[in-house]
């Protein structure tokens, strides 16, 4: 296991970069002892955070997205930052099914998925000042996992 490793990515808010971001996150996360379901949860959470940047941050076009990731004793830390229009009411935006989009296919479940699939989620935003999403996930304790799998 590698402790203290980190990765920074900067890319334009384009749909094709959603996959780039989640695959990079999965590659770094694989240096910790995450289970395969946990790895999938990380990929979904990153996909949601970056999709939000693509869909909402820059209504006039595209802009920069920065992703920082770090693995350490406390698990995997991921920060996704845009310099876009920001969120008017963060608490409201985090409510399930809330969306500002007029596209009926947009469910407003992005933050719900991030919250459910990661251990911690913090969202910092202000109108006109961009948005920063910070997430953390720690692998479930490998010893208790092994104990749980032992036949009784």
């Amino acid at each position: 296991m590698t402790k203290g490793n980190w990765l920074q990515l900067k890319f334009p808010s384009r749909p094709e970069n959603v996959a780039v971001a989640r695959l990079a996150a999965a590659a770094l996360a694989s240096q910790l002892d995450f289970t395969l379901p946990e790895m999938e949860e990380i990929k979904v959470a990153v996909s949601e955070a970056v999709s939000n940047c693509v869909l909402h941050a820059y209504p006039q076009g595209e802009g920069p997205v920065e992703m920082e990731m770090r693995v350490g004793e406390e698990g995997l830390f991921i920060t996704v930052t845009d310099k876009g229009q920001g969120i008017l009411d963060v608490n409201r935006a985090r409510e399930p099914t809330f969306t500002t989009s007029r596209d009926p296919d947009h469910l407003g479940l992005g933050f719900t998925f991030m919250e459910n699939f990661m251990d911690d989620l913090e969202v910092e935003s202000a109108p006109g000042r961009g948005t920063q999403v910070r997430m953390r996930k720690k692998p479930a304790d490998v010893y208790s996992k092994a104990a749980g799998e032992e036949p009784s």
Binding site: E48, S51, D105, L107, F113
Partner: peptide
Amino acid sequence: AFVDSTGVGALLGRYR
């Protein structure tokens, strides 16, 4: 191999 909320949204949109 992978589905996120935008994928689920597209499924639900066609369902509706």
